[in-house]
Amino acid sequence: MTEQRPLLEVTDLVKHYAVRGGVLRRQVGTVHAVDGVSFTLGAGETLGLVGESGCGKSTVARTVLRLVEPTSGAIKLDGEDIAPLSKTALRPYRRSIQIVFQDPFASLNPRMTAGDIVGEPLTVHSIATGAKKQERVAELFQQVGLRPDQMKNFPHQFSGGQRQRICIARALSLGPRLIVCDEPVSALDVSIQAQVINLLIDLQRKQNFSYLFIAHDLAVVAHISHRVAVMYLGRIVEIADKHELFANPRHPYTQALLASVPIADPKAKRAAPLIDGDVPSPINPPSGCAFHTRCRYAIDRCKTERPALQAAGPAHQVACWLNDGTGRSE
């Protein structure tokens, strides 16, 4: 029974922001940043979250950490709903979920040594102090491929890749069950990206925690994830096992997204862009299926009724009215 339960279960997560205007700062609109997102994440599993800017992927990540308060919905960690918990009640759960941010230049305190940065969570949660803490920090440094003698250095003395290793060590310090990675390699040089991706994969194999991995680079997400969820305007439009998703994308948006990725092979013919225009504003998003304004298969029903995620095969769900099981892809 407990074996079956996923580590993280997010149900109908909603995050709306009020848009205020006029001299009285009255609410004039609502940003539908996350609009009913549900997914599960198993222990030791990596779920990739992809989508374009403004699709809500970062908001989902931050809401799971309760860095952003959800408007509604449930976030179950090991079966316990952490969404309604007070700050104090939430504290023990904070240890279980950690985050690695995109910009390792902005997410490290420049006035603290690397050792203090990595050791701070141990102090905050009263886990270790003094020599014991130093020992644990040294061990963490080694785990992420840094030398313990670099503990006394300040962030500016490290390169971008090394700083991201410090961020990873800090995330690991409390022995989390889930690490949220929000574009962890986007700010790094190409030759450094591979080092960090390999490190993340190795750490997971050894320690069996889960990743919620967010990136706009589909190839990076595909490489590290077991399953991938595609988001569009605050909703998940397709979620599947990664091989299944890339081999057999069912949602027209997923198809367009995959076709847009430039392939590093000059012999691969560039396909004409499958979609035109920009993502509509999440303030007053389109009715029905939010993608219908750019979808070349859209029918009348798409404009009025919102499709729910439905099974489209084993470990494959898609939210599209045209997914009627006829295997339509082109």
């Binding site: 595909a222 490489h223 091989h243 590093a264």
Partner: peptide, 17 residues
């Protein structure tokens, strides 16, 4: 060192160089 979008026939992940 660049990850490639997985091709349908590749079921095993190669480690990035």
């Amino acid at each position: 060192s660049i990850p490639a979008v997985p091709s349908p026939d590749a079921k095993e992940d190669v480690r990035l160089v």
